[in-house]
Design a protein around this nucleic acid. Structure first.
Length: 213
DNA sequence: CGTGCGATTATCT
DNA sequence: GATAATCGCACGC
């Protein structure tokens, strides 16, 4: 299966994100067909980690397209992004959900480890942290070239026949300095697909004792 | 089905 | 010291 070309990814996250639906992210034995993604930009996007400019963590987003940006979140989860756009701009697509199409046993073992109740198969990669977990991706995979056939993690083009309706909406859980209102409708998913995560608005961060007043 | 809450730590200010 | 691009579980309808 052919991999995504770096040139195509240079178009930028907002252009690339809907085109990634139906594509396949493969990490070792496990492969996931993408059904839900979100686009993030840099300075003009308050929801982006790169909004305030490059830091050691976000530097890779300002680099060449086609590399993996992985971040550690909420003290326990990992999320996987594909860096897009031209070098010098911060642009990335967050992989939010998909269907495990290869390595089902490995994915089940990873996701259900230490849990009394197993997840249904359609939940194995439903949500960004679940997807990374199913793939076995963590901070060690940050900076991997997804366009290199020698890499441990690769981004494959989907089969052209898989045409479904692409739907669009606000991104999930994005707060940012300006609040939810400043977010863009940059969440893309395949309508009706059971592996698309359920929408959750950004959690209110003020404790109850400080909300009154 | 939906809403609410706490876990747990890299990263930034 | 505060925050967070989440998840799983509890509980109510």
């Amino acid at each position: 299966m052919a991999l995504w070309s770096r040139e195509a990814l240079k178009q930028g996250a907002v252009m690339v994100a809907p085109m990634l639906l139906g594509s396949v992210i493969r990490s070792g034995d496990v492969a996931v067909r993408l059904t839900e993604v979100e686009a993030y930009e840099g300075f003009r996007d308050p929801g982006s980690h790169a909004y305030r400019g490059p830091t050691p963590r976000t530097q890779i987003m300002f680099g060449q397209a086609g590399f993996a940006y992985v971040y550690f979140s909420y003290g326990m989860h990992h999320c996987l992004n594909v860096v897009c756009g031209r070098t010098g701009t911060a642009s990335a697509v967050l992989l939010r959900g998909g269907e495990v199409i290869d390595g089902l046993e490995v994915a089940r073992n990873r996701r259900n480890a230490g849990r009394s109740q197993g997840h249904p198969d359609r939940d194995l990669a439903r949500g960004p942290a679940r997807l990374a977990s199913a793939l076995g991706v963590d901070l060690h995979h940050k900076g991997v070239d997804l366009c290199d056939p020698a890499s441990i993690v690769q981004l494959e083009m989907g089969s052209p026949s898989r045409s479904r309706r692409v739907e669009t909406g606000p991104r999930v859980g994005v707060s940012g300095p300006g609040g939810d209102g400043t977010t863009y409708p940059w969440r893309f998913w395949l309508g009706g697909d059971p592996t698309v995560s359920t929408y959750r608005a950004a959690k209110s961060r003020l404790p109850r004792s400080r909300q009154e007043h």
